[in-house]
Write a protein that binds this DNA or RNA. Structure first.
Length: 560
DNA sequence: CCCGCCACTTAGGAGGTGTATT
DNA sequence: AATACACCTCCTAAGTGGCGGG
């Protein structure tokens, strides 16, 4: 089946993109670009802005001053009140100081960044108050940078680069309780950057040279550097609308569709494995049950102390679940409470089958809260097993598959042909929302949520009044024009009410992530054709660019 | 089998932009 | 023209998973 899948992918790709694929691992033949764009040099503080230590004016060296500004800029943020943030910051800041500065400045609490902070706020304010002409000039300058650095030539296609700018220096802001928050993220020099290309080599900034120039066409990145916080590599890569990324995206959904055809067998298999004599096999089966049913992430191990304490399926600990024989009228309920990716809380009470429940009890026996739930399992073993069941199958494919199949089912269930466009879009959003909830894609409620909800309600009330009035007028006049006015008014009212419902239901849900990363766009395109809703209503410009391949190839009868 | 390294996808928030409303 | 707010783009952190070497 593997050969068959590969062949069909290659075949379909060649039809779609009208170009043959390269041999094993080769991603391109020709690659030309201008290198990354570097952030501007540090501009020293004006003479009338001072830093004070212990009440006394202190003129800082350039390097120390730049890092002081990073802190001053964040002073309104809660970060700067956190102990870990402040300690990390102060330690790293001191490294940038001269001998004299270091021997003087020994306590962050005695540092007064007030004037620097005020200067920063004034700058932000001034930028907001720029004239139209000034704003236009800034826009044009930015466009010039995009024109020069934002594109590359890859195999005769001019492609947009996704992130062509080197990340500027600043203070590291991790998510959640990150042990490294506040550390200094250093300025990247051309000497730190590896260039990947074929053809003409980009010219480094004057007086500088690249760390290395290589010609590796088995990878897709144009430039890379190593960041100093985690020691990980950062890449400059193509935009999502590029041919390279589009093909990869398409392949991802084809693998998920392949899973659809064998998911029943795989489910039967792990149900059998729940009774295995091997503890490892049972743990694998329970983990798979969670991954499939709840769309949990795989849960790779993480280095302790390097990142926030978050987990996925395989890294769940005993303290993250509570077992209830009975709860809210259901039997065998597992209560999940843990921090997942980006320290987003996963909280869910799930009735499970008895075999899973009994296994969980067994796995938790004689363990401490901090012990691994699945002590005989890791993502590597899980993925090895999965790839033996189906080529290309890994834990994350289940998320893609379950997200896409859920969207398709929900759209079928919720959409009525006779609805108007606003109602159809509400159904679409609700289907999308079902997926976002499954995948636990949350957002902080917008700061002005309650206010804007109240405003909308006031508008609805006003419209209702207006409608009543228009109806009275119609009765009296029975004029063609009045009838039209009533009809228009009713439509507007319905539209607003639908909008209010949609917004309320979406308070803490983020739809974008699933739309962009988990939902096969062909499902949405086919739906839009079927129910005659223009695709522009569900995808904005950049989404249409990213999913151009799907918009091109999808017929109304497409089935995931 | 384990570890470290690498390449790539997935993620939420900040802040800018454009549009509707007053 | 001013204001409010919804939507979008950018940013970069935080995941997944493959590979090679000991």
């Amino acid at each position: 089946t593997y050969v068959c899948l590969t062949r069909s992918l290659v075949l379909l790709a060649s039809i779609t993109w009208e170009e043959k694929k390269y041999e094993d691992g080769v991603k391109w033949r020709f690659l030309e670009h201008n290198g990354p764009y570097f952030p501007p040099d540090y501009q020293p503080l004006p003479d009338n802005v001072h830093f004070y230590y212990d009440g006394k004016k202190v003129k800082l060296s350039l390097a120390a001053e730049e890092v002081a500004l990073f802190f001053a800029q964040m002073l309104d943020h809660e970060y700067t009140t956190k102990k870990v943030f402040r300690e990390n910051y102060f330690k790293d800041w001191r490294k940038e100081m001269t001998h004299e500065e270091r021997s003087l400045i020994k306590n962050l609490d005695k540092c007064d960044f007030g004037e620097i902070h005020a200067m920063h706020k004034a700058k932000v304010e001034a930028r907001k108050n720029m004239t139209k002409e000034e704003k236009l000039a800034v826009k044009e300058a930015n466009q010039k940078i995009v024109d020069e650095y934002g594109f590359c030539l890859l195999d005769h296609h001019k492609e947009r680069i996704g992130n062509f700018k080197i990340e500027p220096p600043g203070l590291f802001r991790g998510r959640g309780e990150h042990p490294k928050q506040g550390m200094l993220k250093k300025r990247i020099q051309p000497e730190d950057v590896i260039i990947n290309c074929k053809a003409s080599i980009p010219v480094p900034p004057a007086g500088h040279h690249w760390k290395e120039v290589r010609h590796d066409n088995t990878v897709t990145w144009l430039a890379s550097w190593t960041e100093n916080i985690q020691g990980s590599i950062k890449y400059i890569m193509l935009n999502a609308n590029s041919k390279l990324k589009g093909e990869k995206d398409w392949e991802k959904y084809e693998v998920a569709r392949k899973l659809k055809s064998c998911v029943d067998d795989i489910r039967n298999q792990y149900h059998q494995d729940l009774k295995s004599k091997q503890m490892g096999t049972r743990q694998r089966a329970v983990a798979l049950y969670f991954i499939d049913k709840l769309a949990l992430r795989a849960g790779n191990e993480k280095e302790e102390g390097e990142t926030a304490d978050t987990v996925g399926c395989c890294s769940l600990r005993v303290e993250h679940i509570t077992l209830h024989e009975q709860l809210d009228g259901s039997e065998c309920v597992v209560e999940f409470d843990f921090l997942g990716k980006d320290s987003i809380r996963y909280y869910n009470k799930v009735p499970v089958i008895r075999k899973v429940f009994k296994n969980l009890k067994l796995f938790m026996e004689n363990k401490q809260p901090g012990d691994d739930l699945f002590d005989r399992l890791n993502t590597n073993m899980l993925n090895k097993h999965l790839s033996s069941l189906m080529p290309g199958l890994t834990a994350k494919v289940f998320r893609t598959y379950n997200a896409s199949i859920t969207l398709q089912q929900q759209l079928k269930e919720l959409t009525n042909k006779s609805d108007n466009v606003a109602e159809k879009l509400l159904s679409y959003n609700r289907a999308n929302r079902a997926v976002a909830i499954l995948c636990n894609h949350q957002r902080a409620p917008p700061k002005t949520f309650d206010q804007s909800m109240a405003n909308l309600q006031a508008k609805i009330d006003a419209r209702k009044e207006h409608l009543a009035l228009a109806k009275t007028e119609l009765k009296q006049a029975k004029k063609e024009a009045k009838a039209k006015a009533v009809k228009r008014c009713e439509e507007q009212l319905l539209k607003m009410e639908v909008q209010a419902t949609d917004r309320e239901e979406n308070k803490q849900i983020a739809l974008g992530t699933s739309k962009l990363n988990y939902l096969d766009p062909r499902i949405s395109v086919a739906w839009s054709k079927n129910v005659e809703v223009p695709v522009e209503k569900i995808y904005n410009k950049s989404q249409r660019d990213k999913f151009a391949w799907a918009i091109d190839m999808t017929e109304a009868d497409f089935e995931f």
